[in-house]
Amino acid sequence: MTTPAVLPHRDAVRAALEAAQLVVGLGGAPDPVPSSGMYVVLYFTPGQSLPESLADARTDFDSLFQVTCVGPDEERCLWLADKVRTALYGPLTVAGRVVWRPEELGGPPVQRDDDVSPPLFYVPVQYRLQSTS
């Protein structure tokens, strides 16, 4: 029986995104920001451990995460969202766990950030991640 931990799950998502050649920031823009202005930011909730049965063995894990896609225009922002979707389509690997494929929950329309110069476009897409031991 393995107690669920959030960081190995976050690292598995990050690895999948980086394997798709995406520049990933954790909780903020990567440093340095790529000259293309295209990157994704990964935000993870701490999740929760859930009982797998009435015996109350809390080995199941359920969490939400968000991937915010950032680009110099709407088209490249949506292109990143497609790349993220493809990267997260396959199975994720977390040692000692069986991980469900991330469930895409969607997000709002692309938005323009005029508080930076030049303006950037971004879209947050949320996912649900579950695993068991």
Rank of each mutant, 00 (worst) to 15 (best):
L54D: 09
A81I: 02
D31I: 05
V23G: 05
R10N: 05
H9N: 10
Q130V: 10
D73K: 15
P118K: 09
G28K: 00
P118M: 07
G106A: 09
F44C: 00
P32R: 00
D11G: 00
P72K: 12
D31K: 03
D56T: 08
T86N: 04
F121M: 08
M1R: 13
P109G: 03
G90A: 09
G96W: 12
L80K: 12
G107S: 08
P108F: 05
T68C: 10
Q130I: 08
V84C: 07
E75A: 15
G107A: 06
V13I: 15
V84N: 06
R85V: 09
A57I: 01
G106S: 09
P108E: 15
G27P: 01
A16V: 06
P32F: 03
L42G: 03
G71T: 14
P4I: 15
A57R: 04
D31G: 04
P30S: 02
F65I: 11
Q48Y: 00
C77V: 11
V84M: 08
V40K: 03
H9D: 06
E75G: 13
S36A: 01
P30C: 02
R10V: 12
L22P: 01
D31Y: 01
P30L: 02
V6H: 11
T68S: 15
M38C: 10
S63Q: 11
Q21H: 06
E103D: 07
F65Y: 13
Q48N: 00
D60F: 04
V116Y: 03
T59V: 14
M38A: 10
G71P: 14
P34G: 01
S49H: 00
S133N: 09
V41M: 05
P118C: 07
F65A: 10
F44M: 08
A57D: 09
D113C: 12
V84I: 07
S49W: 00
Y39N: 04
P102E: 11
S63N: 10
A5R: 15
Y127Q: 01
D73T: 14
R97T: 15
L80I: 07
T68A: 14
E52A: 02
E75P: 08
A95M: 09
T132C: 07
G28Q: 03
T2V: 13
L26G: 01
C69M: 13
L80F: 11
A57G: 04
R14W: 06
D62P: 00
V125R: 06
P30Q: 03
P8W: 09
Y39S: 03
S35R: 09
A29T: 03
R10T: 14
P46Y: 00
Q130T: 14
L92Y: 02
P46K: 01
Y89K: 01
P119Y: 13
P108R: 12
L120P: 02
V70L: 08
S117I: 11
L7I: 14
P51T: 08
L42K: 00
E103Q: 06
L22S: 01
P4C: 13
G71V: 15
D113S: 13
S63Y: 04
T86F: 08
V23F: 07
Q111I: 07
